[in-house]
C-alpha cells in the first residue's frame, strides 16, 4: 500500500501531465484524513500540492486515511464509499466531481 504522500503526488503529476483537462480551473481542495490534511490548489489549471489545511478551501473531502487510500488505489468504489459515508464532501460538489474528471 503506498503512502498518502505518494497518492497526492500522483494526483498532482496526473493533473500536470494533462493540462488540457484543468485549463482555466481555479479551485482549492482540502483532504482531511486521519490526523493529517493535504491541500491541492489549482490556480488557472496549474496544481500545487501543500501538506496541511487550506485557508479557505472550495471543497473539502473527508475520509479516514485507510478509506482514502482504498479509494485512490481502486480498492474501494467511490460511489459506495460516499453512500456509506466513508467519504464526505463539504463545499462545492461540482468541483469535487471536476477533480474526478481530472483523474480519469
Amino acid at each position: 500500500m503506498p503512502e498518502a504522500k505518494e497518492v497526492f503526488a500522483e494526483i498532482e503529476n496526473r493533473i500536470k501531465s494533462h493540462p488540457e483537462k484543468s485549463a482555466g480551473l481555479n479551485a482549492t481542495y482540502q483532504f482531511d484524513l486521519s490526523g493529517e490534511s493535504w491541500t491541492l490548489k489549482i490556480a488557472n489549471g496549474a496544481p500545487e500540492l501543500i501538506q496541511g489545511p487550506a485557508q479557505s478551501p472550495n471543497t473539502t473531502l473527508i475520509a479516514t486515511t485507510d478509506d482514502w487510500m482504498n479509494i485512490a488505489t481502486g480498492k474501494l468504489n467511490p460511489v459506495t464509499a460516499f453512500m456509506q459515508q466513508k467519504l464526505k464532501v463539504k463545499g462545492d460538489m461540482g468541483l469535487a466531481m471536476k477533480l474526478q474528471g481530472l483523474l480519469q
Partner: peptide
C-alpha cells in the same frame, strides 16, 4: 473519490 459524470 467521486464518479465520472461525463456520460450522464
Amino acid at each position: 473519490m467521486v464518479t465520472d459524470v461525463s456520460v450522464s
